[in-house]
Design a protein around this nucleic acid. Structure first.
Lengths: 342, 342
DNA sequence: ACTAAAACTTGTCGCGCGTAAACTTTTTTG
DNA sequence: CAAAAAAGTTTACGCGCGACAAGTTTTAGT
């Protein structure tokens, strides 16, 4: 059926479809905007001839493209890969073209990505900043230029909105659970957390412990970068040898640290879990995609991935379509995921 | 220092830099192609005025863009995220603009991505196809149109080259290791593997076992899709209950399946490893980023990520720069990674 | 059936840049 | 220092499409 005549541009395509070029152009911008009969004629021609409008010519002339930038700090972390997948899907469903970028934990790369994004003239950007290391001024400038929704990790009140998890709620919930079912937890975190969520979680841990009449016990892991599992393992090993965990329960700042800590305990021959013969209980925070498959499976509090990604996209599109709102902070509650590690 | 005068286009920028527009254009295409003195004048102006050529106007007029498409089947798998990261980095170093796409295990999405890629007019594409499910004809057509290097998973002789691991070598090495150090391994794989590598690994397992005088024992896991861990866990559980593993050693078709199987054994209270008190040995194939952190850490054969990504990029760029070679198959050897699981 | 609104047509301009030809200036070279 | 080579300038065109104005046809509403 497909005719072999090659269509070079919209002019030629308009000719073979029997419709004028401006109308064809209108169709490609929004198929609903033309009459049913002309729409059919165009789509018949589309079925017969292989033509697609030149995306560069389109974007050059449209003030706003249909591009959406998605930037995550570290794509090798399946947590971000999973969120990115959700975001991508929802952008496509809304008729936009998402482009995915990862800063790979490098703040210079993050700025380069924003720079590249600028020249892409996106309709909007969904940005999970690196956190503590992000070059604030440059990001602020970017948010002022291009409609941007921040997620996962907030940066002051930059952008249209911040969408993330209610860290105090997450941490409080798991602290209370751990206290209710055994010894109060120590808190295991990185000494220099690259993510502001870490600070909120520490504060929430301290608050929850004090409310329950316990003394907060914080164990800090040395190490830089985004290799959280390895940091959790090596620093966990060190803490173990120095008996830094004062109770038989450890709450980790995030699941990846917990995964590393599980390995450390395994290597020391200590059983982890709530059973009789276990030496220690370990819990995480995030519900990382792999947490269900650790040994023992990791008890944690789940972030509401879907709600976060859905609300981020909705907020961005509302703003793109002209809705004006003051900066909003939207936090979603987490859910306790009880498995065998605690 | 930065002047606040806004530069709209190359015309204006040429004016303020005191150089003619064609020369400025030449500079942006290749800074080396202009005289040192004029280069300095342009770069001085660049430092003072904030101007970047419009990428859409550039790409509309250049027959070939500087875009490189990177397509992986499933980005939530850190294995692919890691390879993608390497590929990305090398493209950037070579002065190209990589764009990352994930098929998310969906063959229709894979075709859509290729379609979108076509309209991006990339200089080249690095493609890890979905495997068995990929719509061959469409991919073949794509490879014929655009310089494409296939990696990880081959599809006949499509594209400029296939770059991957020497699966027979990988499988043979680990089979020999397992046989040397204990009972010969059963082989645990998905009943309908979505990836052709799985078939090669099964064949290699069978060959290696026969050469060593053992009878191959294959256990097949039911399940569809890319949730390998869950398939490994549930099917592993079933196989365990039905005593389908005839020896105390299991070689898994890939690490993610092994990770799920570890969980199944854990849930059944069976210790995994080579120690005296262990019920079973489990080994994987790939050296997944998380394999070092499973409990016990997973013995596996490592794919040479770096070599694969480097050679893929080099081959693509050689072709882009005009080098003509017949279709090449480049396989890299793996390395035994001995940990505690086997 | 008549009228107004909606949709389409023709024609024309401009976006920002690549590219090429013809000419001029600067640099290199023997 | 003259001649050749290299680099830069001027001028002009074209890429494929969005956008708009003015006129024409179709549709919807009474």
């Amino acid at each position: 059926m497909m005719s072999n005549a090659k269509i070079k541009n919209m002019e030629e395509f308009a000719a073979v479809s029997g419709i004028s070029r401006p109308t064809v152009s209108k169709y490609f911008n929004d198929p609903e905007s033309v009459r049913q009969t002309t729409r059919k004629r165009i789509e018949d021609a589309l079925a017969e001839y292989d033509y697609r409008p030149n995306i560069y010519a389109i974007n050059q002339n449209r003030r706003l493209t249909k591009n959406i930038g998605i930037v995550v700090p570290y794509l090798v972390d399946p947590f971000f890969a999973e969120i990115a997948r959700n975001l991508e899907q929802q952008c496509i469903e809304a008729g936009y073209r998402p482009t995915l970028f990862s800063s790979h934990g490098d703040q210079d790369l993050e700025i380069e990505i924003l720079d590249h994004l600028r020249s892409l003239k996106p309709a909007g950007v969904l940005l999970a900043p690196l956190g503590r290391h992000s070059k604030k001024l440059e990001i602020e400038k970017f948010c002022a230029e291009i409609p941007t929704v921040l997620f996962d990790s907030s940066l002051e009140d930059f952008g249209l909105a911040f969408v993330g998890s209610d860290n105090p709620q997450l941490s409080t919930m798991i602290v209370e659970y751990l206290c209710r079912t055994g010894e109060p937890p120590c808190f295991f975190e990185m000494a220099n957390p690259s993510n502001p969520n870490a600070n909120k979680r520490r504060q929430s841990y301290i608050g929850a412990m004090e409310r329950l009449g316990h003394i907060p016990m914080i164990v800090r892991a040395d190490g830089e970068g985004w290799a959280f599992e390895e940091i959790g393992r090596s620093a966990g090993m060190a803490a173990l040898k120095q008996s830094n965990f004062k109770t038989n329960t450890v709450l980790c700042s995030n699941d990846r640290l917990a995964i590393g800590l599980l390995t450390a305990f395994y290597e020391q021959g200590k059983r982890v879990g709530f059973a009789e013969d276990c030496a220690i209980r370990i819990a995480g925070q995030d519900d990382h995609p792999f947490s269900r498959f650790t040994c023992p499976p990791l008890t944690t509090v789940a972030q509401d991935y879907k709600a976060i990604s859905r609300y981020s996209v909705e907020t961005l599109f509302a703003a793109i379509q002209g809705e004006v709102k003051p900066h909003e902070v939207k936090l979603f509650a987490g859910q306790l995921v009880m498995r065998q590690s605690a």
